[in-house]
């Protein structure tokens, strides 16, 4: 009788413990998973890819190559988060940088934060590196265009149902004369229905 009750106790305990344990499943980074309906990595990658593809397919790039005889050098500036969510715009910027560099159609210049670190390194080399390996100041590649933008949202709520509308606007501005050579826009609309019941 005692053995039987201990057996049942062990069964119940293992069921309870298995319910409490953490499970981890490795996923493909490209796999689309939406949990809360908020802006996620899929949105970030999708928008970056589509917008950069659009920007590189427009006439400004061929006009620049024709007039200057070289590929344009681009830098990604600030993308302002004006949305309802705490969006890490750095990952979005990183996605855009990757798409731009991998396109092979533009030169890409490091961001201002990266540049400062490199300048510090050059200043250090100026003092400490041998003459043969030292890199000189004043040899930086100046960008021709800066890409800037913003993420906006409109949220419409009715009870447990929400329509989330995201609009990402990007602009490519000529650093030489402030001309806007490309304006891109990408919209995402999501219908989020939250359950009215929980466990």
């Amino acid at each position: 009788m005692k053995i039987q009750s201990s057996f049942w106790l062990a069964i119940v305990a293992s069921v309870i413990l298995s319910a409490c344990s953490t499970s981890v499943e490795r996923l493909d980074a490209q796999q689309q998973i939406d949990l809360s309906g908020a802006w996620n990595d899929t949105d970030s990658q999708l928008v970056a890819r589509e917008m950069i593809e659009d920007s590189l397919s427009r006439a400004w790039i061929s006009k620049f190559v024709k007039s200057e005889g070289k590929d344009p050098a681009v830098i990604v500036g600030r993308v302002k988060n004006l949305s309802h969510e705490h969006i890490n715009t750095n990952t979005f910027i990183a996605n855009m940088e990757r798409e731009l560099i991998n396109s092979g159609e533009v030169q890409f210049v490091a961001s201002s934060a990266n540049r400062q670190e490199i300048r510090d390194e050059r200043a250090d080399q100026d003092l400490n590196a041998s003459e043969a390996t030292r890199k000189e100041m004043g040899q930086e590649y100046g960008a021709d265009f800066m890409m800037q933008g913003q993420i906006n949202t409109i949220i419409d709520v009715d009870g447990s149902t929400q329509v989330r509308f995201y609009q990402v606007n990007l602009e490519l501005i000529s650093i030489k004369d402030n001309r806007k050579v490309w304006i891109g826009e990408k919209k995402i609309k999501k219908l989020v229905k939250n359950s009215k019941l929980r466990g």
Binding site: L82, E85, H86, V157
Partner: peptide, 17 residues
Amino acid sequence: IDDARVEMLQADVEMKK
């Protein structure tokens, strides 16, 4: 301040709800 702005937008949605 940008994150503070996000909170205010969320508060607005919550008040509408």
